[in-house]
């Protein structure tokens, strides 16, 4: 069964509500390796060899983070800059990640409908995530649609529970080898139903 590396970035997890709740689901999913980047590298001094080794031993790479400034917290960028080396991850000689899958798992303060051409944010999630998609592609991996927890600023506890269940389902399906068949879909959320089967 595929193993999933969850590269987690939240600079102040103790203040988080959404991500603290989501990662509680991880305990019961053995195929997921939870890697808390801010906890591992409080000085941003990322250990490149260790990170590359981790990548090699997993099949799916997930970046989980709040959607700060339509992007990721700084350590994700630092990680990409340092770990995805030329000649290792990309370039004509760099094929170490070839064939793996990657995705973003994000939370956004604004609700989903503002992430649209006619909405307040003017662009869709996937448009904002284009740098991730292309970086993944450059490393010869497949980019999967993102899993999004939207509207967190006004989220009721009950809805958070629903999203936590959905998150759990997504991870179970991914690690069961059931990657979504439509890589072009806007969100991974849309391909999950309450019965836990991927829609097409």
């Amino acid at each position: 069964m595929p193993r999933l590396l969850l590269l987690f970035a939240h600079p102040a997890l103790e203040k988080s509500r959404i991500h603290k709740r989501l990662i509680r689901e991880l305990k019961s999913i053995p195929q997921v390796t939870f890697h808390d980047l801010y906890e591992a590298y409080p000085d941003f001094n990322i250990d490149i060899a260790t990170e590359q080794q981790l990548l090699l031993s997993h099949d799916i790479i997930a970046f989980q983070h709040p959607f700060y400034w339509y992007s990721a917290p700084a350590i994700i960028k630092q990680w990409m800059d340092l770990v995805l080396e030329h000649g290792w991850a990309y370039g004509s000689e760099g094929r170490m990640l070839e064939g793996k899958k990657a995705l973003n798992i994000i939370s956004s303060g604004g609700p989903r409908h503002v992430y649209a051409p006619e909405g307040r944010n003017r662009f869709t999630y996937r448009q904002f995530l284009a740098p991730f998609e292309q970086s993944v592609r450059l490393c010869k991996m497949d980019y999967l649609p993102p899993f999004v927890v939207p509207g967190t600023h006004r989220m009721e506890q009950q809805d958070l529970e629903t999203f936590a269940a959905l998150y759990r389902q997504a991870l179970i399906l991914l690690t069961a080898g059931n990657a979504p068949t439509d890589p072009g879909a806007e969100l991974l959320n849309d391909q999950l139903t309450s019965s836990g089967i991927l829609t097409h």
Binding site: I48, D81, L82, V83, E85, H86, G87, G91
Partner: peptide
């Protein structure tokens, strides 16, 4: 850090 090294 080779990641920030453009030489290659």
């Amino acid at each position: 850090e080779r990641g920030w090294d453009e030489e290659s």
